[in-house]
Each structure stands twice: as C-alpha cells, then as structure tokens.
C-alpha cells in the first residue's frame, strides 16, 4: 500500500502493534464538500416535501423547515458517524473513517463532541482553524478531533499479494541439490532475497520490457551468488530461475 502521509500506531492489549494511515487535509476537505452537498440535498428535499402545505399553514411550514434544516445540518455528521462506525457519505466515498485515537470504534460522546466543536474549526472561513490545527497536529487532528480524542484514517482495502506467483510453475530442480540450496541460503543476502520475492509478487504490475530486464539482472546475480551449475539453469527463463531460487531460499529445510 502506498501512503506517504502520517500513520497512527496502535498497540492492542494482546501486545500486537498495527498502523493506520491517517487521512490528509485534501481528502478530508473533499469528503466534507460531498457531505455539504448531501446536507443541501436533504434540506432541499424537506423544503420540497413540505411545499404542498405552504398555502394552508405557512407559518407552521416555515417553522418546520427552519428547525428541520438546522437539525439536519447539525445532526448529519453525528447520526452517520454513530451508525456507520465513523463514516459519512463523503467519508465513505473517499474511503475515510473516524476512529478513536486508540483505533477503537467511536463512543457516542466522542461522536457528539467532535461535531460540536466543528464551528470553531470552521472559523473564520473554509475550515481555516481546523486546517491549521491538522497541519500542526502529529496525528492530523482538527480541534474537534483533539477534543474528542479521535483521528480520521484511510480504510482502503489492502489485497493479499498474489502468492501463486511464488510457486514455481515447473519442477524446481534445485530441490534435488540440498547443498546448492544451503549455499544459496548462506550466500544470497537477505535483502536481495526479499527483493526477488517482491519482484515476483509485483510482476504483473511491470511493463514487459522492464520485467525482462529486471529478472535478467536478478537471475545473473543469483547465479553468481549461488554458483549455480549451468545444467540447472539451462533452458530456463530468467524469471523461472528467480522463482526457483526464491522457492529454495524460503522453503523449510526438509
């Protein structure tokens, strides 16, 4: 996952540490714009739905509109963040979510508090105070987040790498030569082995010419480190050699 921004590190009671990518100001601003559009749409719908009663009860309709629009504007974020586990329509669209600073789901008090403090973040115009607070805060928190101890994180799905690329498509002849496998494990630097694995996992993302060139260089280096006999590499593509070496390198010794 590529994320150049800040991270929130969380340690669970089980002692496991994980990181959550924090949402940046631009994504949050765009999500807010979508939410404003949603609020405007609901307000328009309320005005439209109550229009039929205007001639009959103009004062009551005006009062209902006034209060309902205020309630929608003030309650939209609170209701959705509470029921949608920290998300609103805008945040869902931008794959963002509000979470407790400890990585937990928001409590109702946190939901209300962070939204009650929104007027201060919006001062004087265009969320300037909130934006400055986010820039200065280690966890990109606006004042409402600081008050409620919340953060906004990105929740983009992270697919599991295609592990099948690690599987040698043909028989791995290196498995018949335990001494060569042992030499490979000893001679190939761990960083180079990791690089080879990552190259295999990302092969489909590469341009064909670049992929051929990359595996050619890798295979040459692995041949040299492992002093691979020519009969074990003859007739095999460079990528196949890299697959076989990775398979042998990370396979549990039998």
């Amino acid at each position: 996952m590529i994320h150049d921004g800040r991270w929130l590190e969380v340690e669970t009671p089980e002692g496991v540490v994980f990181s959550l990518p924090l949402a940046g100001p631009v994504a949050r601003f765009l999500a807010w714009q979508i939410d404003l559009a949603a609020i405007a749409a609901v307000a328009t719908a309320i005005a439209y739905l109550t229009r039929w009663a205007w001639d009959l009860l103009p004062d009551t309709v005006a009062a209902v509109n006034y209060v309902a629009i205020f309630v929608v504007a003030a309650g939209y974020h609170m209701l959705l963040e509470w029921r949608w586990r920290g998300a609103t329509i805008g945040k869902r669209a931008l794959r963002l979510r509000v979470v407790d600073r400890r990585g937990l789901r928001l409590s109702p008090v946190q939901v209300v508090l962070r939204n009650l403090l929104r007027p201060v973040d919006q001062l004087p115009l265009f969320n300037l105070v909130g934006g400055v607070a986010m820039g200065l805060s280690r966890h990109a928190q606006r004042l409402g987040d600081l008050g409620a101890n919340t953060v906004v994180v990105r929740v983009a799905p992270v697919p599991l790498p295609p592990v099948e690329h690690l599987t040698p498509p043909r028989y791995n002849s290196l498995r018949d030569r335990p001494h060569i496998e042992a030499r490979l494990r000893r001679a190939v630097p761990p960083a180079a082995a990791v690089l080879a694995v990552r190259a295999l996992l990302r092969r489909d993302e590469m341009d064909a010419a670049a992929r051929v060139e990359l595996f050619r260089e890798m295979a040459a280096a692995l041949r040299q480190w492992g002093a691979l006999p020519p009969e074990l590499t003859a007739g095999r593509s460079d990528e196949q050699i890299v697959r076989n070496v990775v398979d042998s390198y990370f396979r549990a010794p039998s």
Partner: peptide, 22 residues
C-alpha cells in the same frame, strides 16, 4: 520476507477486527 505486502494486509484486517471486537 514480503513484510510490506502481507503485513499491510494483516494490519488492515486486524485494525478492522480490533475496532469491532473491543
């Protein structure tokens, strides 16, 4: 060895489950 890819996947999974379980 493939720390980044698998760890990212597991971290995202654990983060979602952690928030829900607790």
């Amino acid at each position: 060895a493939v720390r980044t890819e698998v760890r990212d996947h597991l971290e995202a999974l654990v983060a979602r489950a952690y928030a829900l379980v607790y």
